[in-house]
Design a protein around this nucleic acid. Sequence first.
DNA 1: CTCTGATTCAAACGACCGTTTGAACTATGC
DNA 2: GCATAGTTCAAACGGTCGTTTGAATCAGAG
Lengths: 208, 208
Amino acid sequence: METPVESTRERLLNVAEQRFGEGGYEGTSLRAITVAAAANIAAVNYHFGSKEALLRAAVARAMAPVNTERRRRLDQLEAAGPPSAEQLIRAFVEPGLDLVLRRGERGAVAARFIGRIAFDPSQRIRELYVAESDPIEARYLAALQAALPHAAPEAVAFGYVNMLGLLALHQSQALTPVPGGGELEDPGKLAENLIAFLVAAFDRGLRA
Amino acid sequence: METPVESTRERLLNVAEQRFGEGGYEGTSLRAITVAAAANIAAVNYHFGSKEALLRAAVARAMAPVNTERRRRLDQLEAAGPPSAEQLIRAFVEPGLDLVLRRGERGAVAARFIGRIAFDPSQRIRELYVAESDPIEARYLAALQAALPHAAPEAVAFGYVNMLGLLALHQSQALTPVPGGGELEDPGKLAENLIAFLVAAFDRGLRA
DNA sequence: CTCTGATTCAAACGACCGTTTGAACTATGC
DNA sequence: GCATAGTTCAAACGGTCGTTTGAATCAGAG
């Protein structure tokens, strides 16, 4: 159809992101991916080595800009003194939803992919996501604890897990078949609503 | 090994609940289920008709007691006048986690199964869950709106979706490979922590 | 042009999938 | 006893899966 300015490798990553995000890892075949990417089946094993290695590469590529932006914001916040809980929550949530905001269609695909992988039925696959978000996790937990001195460490960790979960949930659009969730609202408003929801929960919903 | 006091049909449902909850629908084969249930492969199609029909039956069986208890609590609350947001949240969350509390090992398996199905990558399968929780959803939304008159209807729906999502998340134990999430704490405390988290978010985290 | 390494290709591999078949077994009523 | 309906069984069905093979094609350097 159009001139393949993208390499086979890039096309495979793009389609994998889209299809894995739609049907999950087990529910998506390499044949479906390679057909949509106009590539040969053997190309996957040539460029990546296996189906799971393709997934790994797609996860790493999709998470990279999110992690970079989170690190940047965290650096910036901490350079200006102890950040508040709201600032920390914002620095975590917004990079995940800005994928949709700033990068349009492709960004929405990446966000859904990330959210889906984070809750894949297989623990081995969920760990791919965790491995990518792990490195900055300790920083967030420590900063959150400092911003919420009244909360117990386990309570802060509980809140962090909930934040991570709710973000992935909205990213994956897994709530689509539910009542008010069908209305795919403006991602900007979604971010603000989610942040307000989490800030209230962190500030007053964690046990001492 | 042991005397099969359970019928083949019951054993299939029990094992399906366990395996689907571990590996998801696509990631679990009928052969794996029938071997673990000490049943013939054809037994699935004899008793249920297909793999998806087996899943449907397992979902319905697992959700029934939860829905019954939610309805009962809702009736009871509404009979005693307009319920508070906390009462409503409690009436929604506790039946989902009491599975683990009151029914021990089997209950934990059922909870994980429900939570997993609620976020299955395939929308067709997620809809099986939605179909089971739909009937009382309108009642909860209306009651929550009445308890939170300051919040916009879309905000109440947003909160409801988040409540539903966080509950399913903890039920599915999908956060196991995350930091503080590994500590599978006392389900009773988990319920209290989750309720406190949600109450704070509902009371002060929803936009007008 | 020739050589070389990178990439693509059609085709096949063995394994596993959900489903179906038809016979064998079981229990119950007559 | 026999007949009947309910259940289980081994075996096979066609199809799809991820992966591998070895030849064909391509691009760039000498």
